[in-house]
Nucleic acid binder design. Structure first.
Length: 466
RNA sequence: GGAGCCAUCGCCAAGCGGUAAGGCCGCAGCCUGCAAAGCUGCUAUCCCCGGUUCAAAUCCGGGUGGCUCCUCCA
């Protein structure tokens, strides 16, 4: 398996710190709002990584956190008049539900900041004791970036004296402009506070991930985990800070490899709350099938930016449709073994830093070749079994193609409509047999107007939702 | 102001020094009562200018254009 390491900026062979096992930690969402397409893309990218590693025989342990203490959440609590647990559990549930609709598997460990306070406090105290962190009069605790000689190694940010250029407002009590809060003391009674030795308050954003990783993973004296993942925007400052805290607290590096996924853009611009162009996953799932969305969002390499657009989504659907039409032709057959050449090639493509484009092209070729074979001999039982097995393998590796194919083409059609379609088709078949083509074509027109396309096959007429 | 990423057929998108994958669209054909579906065939020298090399879309330098990070962010 080769993966692109965004710290070394090169593709590297994955050599896990424990042979045969891979530990992954991915930064999850801050749960104060609904998930958008960007969250989906990140989740999908690392889901693909996990599936590929498992297919290669690795034992994968994946952790994805929920940040459930945060300024934004506190704002929402005040505005909505609900408790913090009410708000966070609502969005966690929705997140998990929507990701499930995209076929994203659950992480093995799903830590929450609120459940990790002991680990957070311990790590901060360690940093204070070792002299890497300092408490100011307000009770806030900052990390002293000047004490970490390797600060900047992750994001390759040079130690420029950017005081004048920095857009960050400086707190007077900070020793260095880059120092960041490990702990924020309560400013007034309304704040959500947790008691610690240094002050009553709440953790900073960056410390959560470091503490959770130390709590749940026990790596080696070199690294805590194999792979740390997240969106490209987290590289700095979030991951830089995580790495610094962990390095200084534990004496070893946080992760052996760092992977970052590209953004989802809308009309060529990053999708973000501040730009007001967020596309919520729940709205996307309202309009499109989860499996199609999955196929589409995964169809561009995870490191590239992804420009979301409906036209391309429909192209993705067409490609998925082709796989399901092949499945229709072979469906009642039981799976035998997938074609070795196909399976090997598919795994090889995914092993190369998740080269999905190659994988999808291999699938398209497999579909075309087997359609051709079935055109020649539609009763080849062994071939059909192999095709079923191929599709099952695709489903396990890439997470699509698992549905019952006739049902796939009828998503969103209710029973009443279905009955009407069946009646019209029966009438059309009669008309056709009576050579009454005017009538049969009229029925076809009527169905097309209903959004139904039909196709005559040797086994009778089948229909699809257009 | 600083740092980085990207630029391949009408559109999406692989390629990681050895002579341009795949999909959509389009055209021609097979199949079909006609369609649809399926199949076959056809369609790019890689933003511009230099350089390195026997050989460059791929490496280096300089432009131009787009995006991102330096503030919460997937």
């Amino acid at each position: 398996m080769f993966i692109y390491d965004s710290v070394q900026k090169t593709k590297l062979q994955l050599i896990p710190i424990k042979a045969g096992e891979v530990s992954i930690y991915v930064c999850g969402p801050t749960v104060y709002d609904d998930a958008h397409l960007g969250h989906a893309r990140s989740a999908l990218a690392f889901d693909l990584l996990s599936r590929t590693l498992k297919a290669l025989g690795y034992k994968v342990t994946m952790a994805k956190n929920f940040t459930d203490i945060d300024d934004k959440i506190i704002q929402k609590v005040k505005a909505a008049g609900q408790s913090m647990p009410e708000i966070t559990s609502l969005y966690i549930d929705r997140y998990l539900q929507e990701m499930a609709a995209l076929g994203v598997g659950r992480a093995d460990i799903e830590p929450k900041a609120t459940q990790s306070l002991k680990a957070i406090e311990t790590m901060i105290q360690t940093l204070i004791d070792k002299g890497f962190a300092y408490r100011v009069s307000s009770g806030d605790v900052y990390f002293d970036t000047s004490k970490d000689t390797r600060y900047g190694d992750i994001s390759h940010r040079v130690n420029e004296d950017e005081e004048s250029q920095s857009r960050v407002a400086h707190t007077d009590e900070k020793k260095n402009s880059k120092d960041f809060a490990l702990w924020k003391a309560c400013k007034n009674d309304e704040d959500i506070c947790f008691k610690t030795a240094f002050s009553s308050g709440r953790p900073g954003w960056h410390i959560e991930c470091s503490a959770m990783i130390e709590k749940h993973f026990h790596g080696t004296n070199e690294y805590s985990i194999d792979i740390h993942g997240g969106g490209a925007d987290l590289l700095f400052p979030h991951h830089e800070n995580e790495a610094a805290q962990s390095r200084c607290a534990t004496g070893h590096e946080l992760a052996k490899y760092w992977m970052h996924n590209g953004f989802v853009q809308i009309d060529g611009e990053k999708m973000s709350k501040s730009l007001g162009n967020s596309f919520f996953l729940k709205d996307a799932l309202q309009a499109y099938d989860g499996e199609v969305l999955r196929y589409y969002l995964n169809s561009v390499h995870y490191r590239n930016d992804f420009n979301f657009n409906e036209e391309d989504l429909l192209v993705a659907k067409k490609r998925l449709d082709k796989l399901y039409r092949l499945k229709k032709r072979v469906i009642p057959s039981q799976a035998s073994m997938p074609n070795t050449v196909f399976k090997t090639a598919l795994l090889e493509a995914m092993s190369d830093d998740l080269n999905v484009s190659i994988a999808l092209s291999l699938i398209d070729e497999m579909v075309t070749q087997n359609n051709e074979k079935l055109d020649v001999n539609s009763k080849d039982k062994e071939l059909k079994k192999e095709i079923v097995a191929n599709i099952e393998f695709i489903n396990s590796l890439l997470g699509f193609g698992g549905k019952e194919p006739f049902g796939y083409f009828q998503i969103g059609i209710n029973e009443i409509l279905k009955n009407k379609i069946e009646m019209l088709l029966a009438e059309r078949t009669e008309a056709k047999q009576a050579k009454n083509f005017a009538r049969s074509d009229a029925i076809r027109e009527e169905l097309i107007a209903m959004g139904i396309s039909i196709m005559d096959t040797p086994d009778g007429t089948v229909w699809e939702r257009a």
